[in-house]
Structures are given as structure tokens and as C-alpha cells.
């Protein structure tokens, strides 16, 4: 079980994990807009670390730059300034340790669920038979065991999300980046998947950077919750250690007084920014 102290000790959740799995140092991302208009600084001077084996959630108003931060972490987007370090090494090009579950649809429409799940193994040159066996196993774990033959358009939005989850996790990445992975699921399936994710995570302690709109989800899953300000120039405005005992059951933990207290505390910080973000997004 992992009890941790709240407050200042943020970088090292466990002894011996001094080198964070992922660290963003003063990352700024400025997008050049198309018609030569003023450029837009989505995130500004963001410092953010995910300790080795730590589960960190990021919440923030819509359009503030959460996906942008994940793209930077995955190595898909080069920050305008600042650096990304992966297990201490400065990141150049793609992040080889990261698995990334995208916010948007990312399955290949011309591949069945099973073929989508194993595509990463295919890239690695894993023999077809072995890849298929592992893929089938993963489909089972995300509750799609009987649907491996389906094409993405034959699956529901939630099924596609689960297939994408299997596609990411089958690669056994050390760092998992997830962009609102469960927002398309109904509450029951969602809690099943959240518990499954916690199981997988606690089995071999991956570093997780998890993005969500849902504060309850963030608290029930994480070691730490980071609140972002509204854009432009988004930056973290609050960090909260979640010292709820583990292992947790996401539906039960929500009923504890400690959870309610944390929820109130974080929501108080968030509220103003959410309103600001909403106004911002209407003006744009």
C-alpha cells in the first residue's frame, strides 16, 4: 500500500524513484495560425513531472491545452521552448517509452478490432500467431473477446475506445498517456475500465499521465491531480496529492469523507478557471 504525504513532496512519490518517468520543463507551445493572424500561445512555462510509477491526472477547462501537453510528451509535437525529459534523458523525436491513447478516433477503419490491437506488435516484428494470441487476450481484458472480427464502424463509440485501450496497453509501455479515454463510456463500463486500468497500473507500476474532464475520475484514480488554468498561456495552478489508500475501488472510494474533502478543495480551485475557459471558447 502506498501512503504518501501531501504538500511539498511532489516529485518523488516513492523512495528510489528519484528520476521522474516524464518531466516537462518550462514547456511553451505557440501555434502559428493560418492566415498570418496573431499566433496563439496555448501553454506557457509548464512544469510538470510524472514520477516513475506515479499516476498523475490533469484536469482543466476545455481548450486549455491538455491534449497539447500530451502531444508534446509523446514526441509528436515539438515545444516552442522548454524541454521534455524521459527517465532523465532529453526527448528527441518520438518518445519510445510512451503509449498514447488519443482523444479522437485512432483505429484504422480498414482493420478489424483484433488487427488494430496487434498492429503495434506487427511493427515490432512479433510473429503473427503470437501477436494474435496476445491480441485476443487483450480483447478479452477490455471486454471485447467476442468482437475481434468487427471493423471500427461496426462497433459502438465505447467499444472503439476499449479497442484503442487494448491497442495501447498491449505494447506494455512504461509511460501511458491517456486523453479522456473513458469519457465515451457509460458509468458502469467506465468504472469497470477504471478498475481494470488501476489493476494493470499497480501490477507493474507504469507512469501514467491521465487527462480528464471528470474531477471525480481524476481523484479516484490518481496519486496526484494537477489543475490547469484556462488558456491562453495555460499553466498549472494547483497540485493536490491524493493520499487515499490503495488498492482502491473507484466506486467505493468516492463515498469516503476524505474523497469528498479533496473534491471540494480541488473544485474550489477549478471553478473559476472553468468559467473563464468557457467564456474564452465562446469568444474564439
Amino acid at each position: 500500500m502506498n501512503t504518501q504525504t501531501s504538500g511539498a513532496a511532489r516529485a518523488a512519490p516513492r523512495a528510489g524513484a528519484a528520476v521522474p518517468g516524464l518531466a516537462l520543463d518550462n514547456v511553451t507551445c505557440t501555434f502559428r495560425s493560418a492566415a498570418g493572424k496573431a499566433s496563439y500561445t496555448a501553454v506557457k512555462d509548464v512544469n510538470l513531472t510524472v514520477g516513475d510509477g506515479e499516476f498523475v491526472s490533469v484536469v482543466g477547462p476545455t481548450g486549455c491545452g491538455k491534449s497539447t501537453l500530451l502531444n508534446v510528451s509523446a514526441g509528436l509535437l515539438e515545444p516552442s521552448s522548454g524541454t521534455v525529459r524521459v527517465f532523465g534523458e532529453p526527448l528527441v523525436g518520438m518518445n519510445p517509452h510512451a503509449g498514447y491513447m488519443f482523444q479522437a478516433e485512432s483505429l484504422m477503419p480498414w482493420r478489424t478490432a483484433l488487427d488494430n490491437v496487434i498492429v503495434g506488435l506487427e511493427f515490432r516484428g512479433v510473429p503473427r500467431a503470437e501477436a494474435t494470441a496476445r491480441g485476443q487476450d487483450w480483447l478479452q481484458r477490455v471486454g471485447l473477446g467476442a468482437h475481434g472480427h468487427r471493423y471500427p464502424h461496426q462497433m459502438s463509440g465505447g467499444m472503439r475506445k476499449r479497442a484503442a485501450l487494448a491497442q495501447t496497453l498491449i505494447m506494455n509501455p512504461k509511460i501511458i498517456l491517456m486523453d479522456e479515454p473513458f469519457s465515451a463510456l457509460d458509468i458502469q463500463t467506465r468504472q469497470l475500465m477504471e478498475n481494470e486500468l488501476l489493476d494493470i497500473w499497480s501490477a507493474d507500476r507504469k507512469s501514467v499521465l491521465f487527462i480528464t474532464h471528470d474531477l471525480e475520475e481524476a481523484i479516484s484514480l490518481s496519486d496526484r491531480v494537477i489543475v490547469l488554468s484556462a488558456g491562453p498561456g495555460t499553466h498549472p495552478i494547483g497540485e493536490f496529492s491524493i493520499d487515499l489508500p490503495r488498492p482502491r475501488d473507484v466506486s467505493e472510494v468516492r463515498l469516503t469523507p476524505e474523497f469528498v474533502r479533496l473534491h471540494d478543495e480541488i473544485w474550489h480551485t477549478m471553478k473559476e478557471e472553468v468559467l473563464k475557459g468557457y467564456v474564452q471558447s465562446q469568444q474564439k
Partner: peptide, 9 residues
């Protein structure tokens, strides 16, 4: 789709 394939290696 492209980004996903690249992340998957």
C-alpha cells in the same frame, strides 16, 4: 491515424 501509428512504433 498517422500519429497513432507512429506512437505504436
Amino acid at each position: 491515424l498517422l500519429a497513432n501509428a507512429r506512437v505504436l512504433g
